[in-house]
Nucleic acid binder design. Structure first.
Lengths: 238, 238
DNA sequence: ATCGCAACTTCACGCCGTATAGTTTCTGCA
DNA sequence: TGCAGAAACTATACGGCGTGAAGTTGCGAT
């Protein structure tokens, strides 16, 4: 039985090394931006040769893909947690919590935001499938929950909506329609638009483009949430 | 007079070479993304040595800064032109034209969009001042014109706005306030929020994040414009 | 005792930005 | 007309990058 025991041990060591590579890569990213994620720097930090990493990730892009997936999942966790921590009975509070969690996460992890939503690393091209789209869909599903919470108040605004299910990706609908069976296509369109609104404001802020325009991006974001709730007709409790 | 004549000729040659460097750099960017802007590739394309470029730009970052400025200016020109080509009497048409020009430019020049709004190039850090912020302010000023056009219809939505002039960058206000003397701070906040909305949707589309969610990003953008006009109360002519 | 394999290193190649030094070519003045 | 000097450009070199190929080491299984 030493056979299975030592194989288990080998696999454990392997998993630990893999975890360390990712940990060091994320540290490098946090301090030097996504560009600082280089195999040689990671190896240097770990007291290894750069080529040793090829035993764990086939290419640098594979490593980056994994990191994107991890970081994106962390973002999804953060916004989901904020949502779940608020009472289902008060849509305004939930929506505000979601949006604030999104912005806060981005400001705390600006390099992670760049990794996930920007050009991650020179020459990187994202693969087709994988778990990163999965995390993206979690975020979109969260946004749809947001739209669903607001829908009773907002539906009258979208009576003549021209959207139908074919306008959306089946992979997204597979997650969204079972979760919200009564929601029409127009609400998913609303969710994606809200995504765009929040992403845009946060993105401009993270990339420093807001800095030259406003001295108070937080206030602008609060105004955004307020106007969003008002537009949707979601009542704000005093 | 050969003195001044030949000096003029030298300067002309110099200007021509500078222009060629920028032209080749933009071609490389268009075909291979901002990462493809390398001094060696440019030089190769021009039949020169990489070091020759140092006679025209002190560092690669200097070249990139110039390119960002040029490309950003081209974007500002495009949206300004679309705005000016529409009748001042119909705010809805003007706003729609502006927004469509913004998205269209981004889709036609995706790499330019990434250069201006993303991480331009590995290791690049933008300098403080320079003409790129100038182009950014032109875009913001255009957006303020948009807000100003809608303001007669939209002002009632922002009666209890908490914004004042100190919330904005003086450099922006220097351009905006003389152009729109009657506009309150709330309208500038609205302009920046609209910027965020449009930037977010276009950015998600350019970076491929919308692809996994909707099959019809154009329709989503049209809906965005329609809802924008509706929430602002700007009448749409039939 | 030996085989096999996983982990890791060494060496090499071609990319990159850029510093330094040398070469060519042309300008402007004596 | 001849020559100093500047401008434009090349040559060489350094360190950093991703990565392919080949070699080394150590350990479990037979």
């Amino acid at each position: 039985m030493t056979a299975t025991g030592s194989r288990a041990r080998r696999e454990r060591l392997r998993a630990e090394t893999t975890a360390e590579i990712k940990k060091v890569a994320l540290e490098l990213m946090a301090s030097g931006g996504p560009d600082a994620i280089t195999l040689r720097a990671i190896a240097r930090e770990m007291g290894m040769t750069a080529n040793a990493i090829y035993g764990y990730f086939a290419t640098r892009d594979d490593l980056v893909t994994t990191l994107i997936s991890d970081v994106y999942t962390a973002l999804a966790d953060a916004v989901d947690a904020a949502w779940s921590a608020t009472p289902a009975t008060d849509p305004a509070v939930r929506i505000e919590a979601w949006a604030n969690a999104f912005r806060t996460w981005a400001l705390v992890n600006p390099q992670g935001f760049r990794l996930v939503y920007g050009d991650p690393v020179p020459g990187y091209r994202a693969p087709e499938g994988g778990p990163a789209p999965e995390a993206a869909r979690r975020v979109c599903t969260g946004l749809t929950a947001l739209a669903a919470a607001a829908w009773p108040h907002a539906r009258h605004l979208y009576r003549d909506s021209a959207f139908d299910w074919s306008d959306f990706d089946p992979g997204l609908l597979d997650k969204v329609r079972p979760a919200f069976p009564d929601l029409p296509p127009a609400a998913v369109a609303l969710a994606l638009r809200v995504w765009g609104h929040l992403h845009g404001l946060v993105s401009l802020e993270v990339y420093g483009h807001m800095h030259n325009q406003t001295t108070n991006p937080e206030k602008l974001f609060r105004e955004e949430i307020a106007q969003l709730l008002q537009t949707l007709g979601v009542p704000r409790r005093r």
